[in-house]
Write a protein that binds this DNA or RNA. Structure first.
Lengths: 136, 136
DNA sequence: TATAATCCTTGAGTATAGTCTAGAGTCAAG
DNA sequence: CTTGACTCTAGACTATACTCAAGGATTATA
């Protein structure tokens, strides 16, 4: 199986090389191994993981939360029920975020439909009126 | 119409008073006025705005992005078409976030359904396998 | 009318998430 | 076998988003 240097990994995910080292310090992305001279060695699954980290960050998750997500896995049957519980908690959190985004999107859609284009005269309004209901 | 001091505003939104002043410095939440002695005066709509800021932050938006959202409004008909365009751009961004969250949620749901509870023996797996497809 | 609570400003300190630099070692191509 | 690209560590620096402290003024309450 092929391996990667830190530079190749960073480049393939369009991430700063120091950021990869930083994630390692934070416990998110450990290299598979080190060469005799101390170079980090990664396997291709690190690309998947690194991309996951970036994607999750863009969704507003902190590195701490992402670390928790990545640690949700089972290595033995003993903690399977426990993993399931934590996964379900995460699902609820994510659903909550989606609901909030949906509310915000609806507010924006109402704002957009109030924009009739050039020539329309509207009283001052903003997303807030549409987000929270009655215009103030 | 009733007004609020900064302390009341902060408390009603469960936000640190210094955070409210910080948002003002960042141009997000300006007081309606100042008293003769320099105290900030807010009207009740500031509560709405401040809560919106916190909610948007929890969705991963930066203060800069939130500021842009709050500035999406029309005061004159002249820029109505322009506002509409920017609102529609924001809607697309939000939809993208929702789609990513949906993908993540589905990954977690598959992970949860692989957890049969105590007594199940599974090979090592994590959200990554479910998030990106084929288990590695 | 004390005195406690609240407000003001300025400026420093903290946490998170990087990003960059310096100085030195390692690896790959010509 | 050198030269350039790459890697290492340690530590300093940056941006964002707060949070706190100091020192002083103002306002509300017992």
């Amino acid at each position: 199986m092929s391996t990667l240097t830190i530079g190749k990994l960073a480049k393939s995910c369009d991430v700063n090389i120091d950021t990869v080292r930083y994630y390692e310090r934070m416990g998110l992305l450990m290299p598979l191994d080190r060469t005799a001279s101390g170079y980090r060695v990664y396997d291709p699954s690190s690309i998947k993981k690194l991309k996951f980290v970036r994607r999750a960050q863009s969704l507003g998750l902190t590195l701490e939360e992402i670390k928790e997500l990545l640690e949700l896995h089972h290595t033995q049957e003993a903690d399977c029920a426990d993993v399931k519980q934590r996964v379900q908690d995460k699902i609820l959190q994510i659903q909550q975020r989606m609901d909030d985004l949906q509310t915000m999107k609806r507010g924006l859609e109402k704002l957009a439909s109030a924009c009739k284009g050039k020539g329309t005269r509207l009283k001052e309004c903003s997303i807030l009126e549409y987000f929270y209901g009655e215009p103030s």
